[in-house]
């Protein structure tokens, strides 16, 4: 068994602040690993460093057996950044945003018949009918789904997600968990940053907990502490939870794939 993600002694210094202080994280092929930690623990910075969006100060990263850089088979890696909005200055349709997910490495133009692949990816997240709609007209949850479709359109072997269910209600977290289960059953590796395990708890095989930029736990998923796990705990997110991933009924996020 090889490691889909192999990070050794990852140190990241940004603007004089040491965000990560020698982090080791491994995800074996086909494993579902959660990266947990409080706000400011460095978990988002870690996945951003992992995919090359933030430069490493020191340490080594290997993705799918290749050292971080041009040698990585980027077309086999799907990344969903933490994001509240997918809309920007100029209008862009959901289809155009997902099409950009077909580019990688030296492939600077979308392949032929990309339209079908894009429609299939949007189908997986229940937004096939919105392919020609501008993303700025979609709700926050729908925009998040467009970004997930952008990562899935290239049928990745390794999926890296940064808080994909932040601000999304429990029902849709469950739907999202069932899709991730399908992916994991197909032997795909998933590394997911989470604020709390929530509905993904049964799926996560291993959890890595970061605190102040260092790993403090690597093993079985931790049980939530009383104040977060209690039935009376009312977890308030800053986002609008009105839209949800399962909003379109049972179609939701079920079938992934060809």
């Amino acid at each position: 068994m090889t490691a889909a993600v192999l990070a050794r002694g990852v140190r990241v210094v940004l603007g004089g602040n040491e965000i990560l202080r020698g982090v080791d994280v491994t995800a074996q092929d086909g494993e579902v690993v959660a990266l947990l930690g409080a706000n400011g623990s460095g978990k988002s910075t870690f996945v951003r460093a992992l995919v090359g969006a933030v430069p490493l100060t020191s340490g080594q990263v290997e993705l799918l057996g290749r050292p971080l850089g041009p040698a990585v088979r980027w077309e086999r890696i799907g990344y969903v950044p933490q994001r509240v909005s997918a809309a920007t200055g100029v209008p862009a349709t959901a289809g155009e945003v997902v099409t950009s997910g077909l580019l990688h490495g030296r492939r600077l133009r979308p392949p032929r018949r990309s339209r079908t692949a894009v429609r299939d990816a949007l189908e997986l997240v229940g937004l096939a009918d919105r392919v020609d709609r501008p993303v700025r007209e979609l709700s926050g949850g729908q925009q998040q789904r467009v970004l997930i479709a952008r990562a899935l359109v290239r049928d990745p072997e390794l999926l890296v997600l940064d808080e994909p269910v932040a601000g999304v209600d429990l029902t849709s977290q469950k739907a999202f968990a069932s899709t991730l289960t399908t992916l994991a059953a197909r032997g795909r590796t998933v590394l997911v940053v989470l604020h709390e395990l929530g509905a993904l708890a049964p799926l996560v095989q291993r959890a890595v907990v970061l605190r102040h930029g260092a790993v403090v736990h690597d093993g079985a998923p931790p049980q939530p502490t009383r104040e977060h796990g209690g039935a009376d705990h009312d977890h308030v997110h800053p986002h609008d939870p009105a839209d949800d991933l399962a909003g379109e009924g049972p179609v939701g996020l079920r079938g992934w794939g060809p």
């Binding site: 951003r48 995919v51 090359g52 969006a53 041009p70 990585v72 980027w74 890696i77 990344y79 950044p81 994001r83 997918a86 920007t88 862009a92 155009e96 945003v97 099409t99 950009s100 997910g101 077909l102 580019l103 990688h104 490495g105 030296r106 600077l108 133009r109 979308p110 970004l147 952008r150 890296v160």
Partner: peptide, 23 residues
């Protein structure tokens, strides 16, 4: 015009473009 999708990808979401290994 020729590199529209690639230039769109970088202008739209630079972090994602990095993670796709784009130059």
């Amino acid at each position: 015009v020729g590199l529209r999708t690639a230039l769109f990808a970088v202008s739209h979401d630079e972090e994602f473009a990095h993670a796709a290994g784009l130059p």
